[in-house]
Amino acid sequence: MQRENWAAILLLLLAGAAAYAHATTTTEEFSRYNVGWNGTSGFAAGEVHDLRNLEPGTTLLILAPDRPFTAGEVEYLRTFLDSGGLLLIADEDGAANPLLADLGSAIRVRQGNLSSLDRDHANPGLFTVRVVENATLFAGVETVRVNRPATVTGGDPLLETSILTWDDADGDGRPGRTETFGTAVVCASEGNLIVLGDPSLFINAMLAENPGFINNLQPVLIDAAHSRTGTTNPVINTLAWVRETPAATAALAALAVLPVAYLFGRKRDE
């Protein structure tokens, strides 16, 4: 075979690999298939698509929920909590509030633009909060770096900002006339239910910021049916379906083998 042919084949392979990588990833916020800074591909967790099969005593993370929970699913979660399971809901835009209400919890997520002077980055939304209550999740952790969190009301406070924190309503990055300083709770608990006002703690770019907290959370299951972590695209969906469907896998293997077999047989005939 000539050199040009090898070069062409190499290029085709590289192009194919690049196209595969491009098609099987996404840039959607919090997606498990987003390998960029704002994805959650680097967060180690087992995916759960059906809440009825939750094992008692495990930890389930519902990260940035954006789809409603049916009455049956709420019941599964309640049973899971009663069985000793730990349910961590991380939300910053209030989408989890209907679920919290259905679970009978008084905790709510209040959307806002918390900013603080208690920070070591130039971005006022990227600051440090203090652990104010003993909890397994925060064992050995004194401070947690949050990333544009929301305020959490109700329940027992677990994480609290310093007093030099304000809701930057006008978004100018500095406290204004109507933006007074004050502490805010960004994480609260109610029994086995913990509500965290900052799902950004689990994005790839933030994992290294709070290693103690991330380690304490392991092992953890993550809900892929109701949250933005499950955000995919048609190519990813197709590949996932093929992986999960044995018949489709076999058909695909056959499709790959048949042309080779045909070529091989034709050569023998010649």
Partner: peptide, 24 residues
């Protein structure tokens, strides 16, 4: 300063001292 509405990428945000605020 890479960021979206939900969060900022800390690796692209310049660092600054937070000790001044503690003294306020």
């Amino acid at each position: 300063n890479t960021s979206t509405a939900a969060h900022a990428d800390p690796s692209t945000v310049p660092k600054e001292s937070g000790k001044d605020a503690d003294a306020l």
